[in-house]
Design a protein around this nucleic acid. Sequence first.
DNA 1: TCCTAGTTGCAACTCAGTCTCAATTATGAC
DNA 2: GTCATAATTGAGACTGAGTTGCAACTAGGA
Lengths: 148, 148
Amino acid sequence: MQAIERFADFLSRNRLKMTRERRVILDQVLGTRGHFDVDQLLAGFRRAGHPVSRATLYRNLPRLIEAGIIHKLEMAHGQARYELMVGRHHHDHLICTDCGLILEFESHDVERIQDEVCRRRGFVMTGHTHQIRGHCAACAGRRRRRRG
Amino acid sequence: MQAIERFADFLSRNRLKMTRERRVILDQVLGTRGHFDVDQLLAGFRRAGHPVSRATLYRNLPRLIEAGIIHKLEMAHGQARYELMVGRHHHDHLICTDCGLILEFESHDVERIQDEVCRRRGFVMTGHTHQIRGHCAACAGRRRRRRG
DNA sequence: TCCTAGTTGCAACTCAGTCTCAATTATGAC
DNA sequence: GTCATAATTGAGACTGAGTTGCAACTAGGA
């Protein structure tokens, strides 16, 4: 599987070790779809009978990010969520503040505009966050109905 | 001054009181330019000889946001910064992760694209975050020089 | 002036994430 | 395979931003 090789490669290039815990974390991440958080992963480790400590998980998430395997989504109120990135295009997010639903969107035009903005300012972009918050179709409908 | 009326109006509409502390906070906010954080405001209160407790400040910042007077910028690692919004256009940010510099940019095209994305998904936007992280011109130059 | 809902400061608390440290282990060299 | 050693681990203490409970105080309408 591509992600495993990629991680092994990243580790050896940085003189880091492929431990049992790292394998367990990677497995869990690869087996989780959508957007997940630290507690979901910890619960998954327990369920699988391969516990990994909170400290170790927190120590290794940045490694998975550096290796390009996952991506971190910093949400309001210090909530962090992660999502698998291997073999995916860059995309941004629509976040429903009622039900927590996260939708994705891609826009080459936005990316082009960002590049242009950076170029004009001599700014070297290393990353960006682009989140639209609001009410998803279902929640918006529910709200309309409630108000009559 | 526009902001003061605006806040007084917001308070009375919501049956809230115009206290000494709220006046001090608003004064400090209006007298601070650029992007500021909670500790800067607290230091300002002390400097002005009008201390306000941390709890009270935290309780009132959301009120200033609801009143449309300031805007909250949620940055990485749970750092929050604020900026004055009265009489300003909506804008987004370029954040230098080396020196902390925050630049602003405006793009009607990005806003148009966002509206279009939302329309297509039946999503009702209530807010958004659009931050570009990287190295500002000065820091990027410094980095290039360091590498030779 | 009185009444009361709203407000305040303080200190205790929460919560996500980080750090310390002693014990353990992967990996490269032999 | 054995050894040496630098990296890694779990537990629990810690940090820092922000929140909360509470008793004392106060703005502002009746």
